[in-house]
Design a protein around this nucleic acid. Structure first.
Lengths: 235, 235
DNA sequence: CAGTGGTCTAGACCACCAG
DNA sequence: TGGTGGTCTAGACCACTGC
């Protein structure tokens, strides 16, 4: 096992990355160059690279090349910090892009959660979020317009928790969270520039107000190598 | 994109699985048979199968074949239920196998957490856990012998939380959790029969007593397709 | 033993990116 | 336009499984 060619190649690059000879964000040689250097075919080179990708050490940009993965951000849902805040606090540069926004009728699941009629309007918001220019997260959310009337007129690239606090005197409190490690839906993978079949992290989050109403339902699709989850459970 | 051969093949099997024409746990045709049927080479067939594996729909048993993934268990750390209990409650059959057990000197990290001297003895326990005969989880834990003297003489394939409750009048309370979506260390992958480079879920857990002492530090390596994490955050 | 997946070769053409 | 990764072919040999 340890003698396989792809395995040795993984070890070679893993060492270069750990020693910082290959620095975070830098580009690897092309697959053909690596193959030439080690007398391997592209198939074998790609297997090694794909394994390192699954490990989270490198990632690819579609048809541009392979790059060393930058450090992951730590996401602690129980801290109630906004994306902008915790990313900034950890020394990274956050950025948010709105891909779509529309008022639409609630589906059965959302309506039931929000305790509204089954086609009552909710605000659907679809965003892409970046850390240091790298797209890491697709967010699709459904926002309760009964609790947050007029929110659709605000600038929805900003932090929602800030907006809630400043304009509605509301804050995130209780949450229900579901985590799944699975490949991303192809739409989200495309929007992140991830090739199909790569692993991802899927988070579903229900945010409640302090009086137990559902403020927002959130679906997050993360690059698996961009985030670690920390949670403290205190009863 | 949608016209690629491997993509169509994925759609074909995804549909069979969703329609339950291919039932949970059943075996797919061999890679060569699939290739013959669709006039594709094994490389292409394997790409489709590997993508479905990342999606969590199928998994492989080393050199035996590809199988339809059974439903995932829901793991809710905040419920404080033991593995045996939550697996059973969800209609599955749990099983635990002890791979190794020894008393060893604490490393710096563990010693600091447990507030003991740096080579004071701790109990190291290494287990493999199954759901319906399928190995899904490797557990490596360090147990505080100061708080649980003599625990090394007990049957350590049983539920630790039961043991703590019955023999030591202790219960799990607060926890710190870290989740990472990454490929598993090769040792854990081997013990689970997972081929290198497949994604996995890595959980680190620190368990505290009700008086804030560290009872146990736990490293869990899960098959990514075997578990969903649910957490309720209530401040 | 035959059949399985695991590894690997030596090519090919394509879509897309950068200069 | 030349170079990149993305997809794919048509083979081969090996290690291991199950009969």
């Amino acid at each position: 096992m340890s003698t396989h060619h792809y395995y040795q190649l993984q070890g070679y690059f893993r060492e270069l990355i750990e020693l910082k000879t290959l620095k975070s964000g830098s580009k690897l040689p092309s697959e053909r160059e690596i193959g030439e250097q080690f007398k391997l075919t592209r198939v074998t080179v790609r297997q090694a690279l794909q394994n390192l990708e699954a490990e989270g050490l490198i990632y690819r940009q579609n048809r541009k090349g392979w790059f060393v993965t930058p450090p992951a951000v730590i996401y602690n849902p129980s801290s109630h910090l906004s994306f902008n805040l915790y990313v900034t606090e950890q020394g990274f540069l956050p950025h948010t892009e709105k891909l779509m926004q529309q008022i639409e009728p609630a589906n059965a699941y959302i309506a039931q959660l929000m305790n509204i009629a089954e086609s009552a309007p909710v605000l659907y918001l679809h965003r892409r979020r970046y850390i240091n220019q790298r797209p890491v997260l697709i967010e699709k959310m459904y926002i309760n317009l009964n609790l947050l009337p007029g929110i659709e007129k605000e600038d929805l690239t900003q932090s929602l928790s800030q907006l809630l606090k400043n304009n509605y005197q509301r804050e995130y409190r209780d949450m229900d969270l579901v985590f799944k490690s699975t490949s991303l839906p192809s739409s989200a993978a495309n929007e992140l520039g991830i090739s199909a079949g790569q692993p991802g992290l899927h988070i579903e989050r229900i945010n409640y107000t302090d009086d137990k109403q559902v403020l927002e339902v959130d679906y997050e699709f993360w690059r698996h190598d961009a985030v670690n989850i920390n949670i403290a459970i205190r009863d």
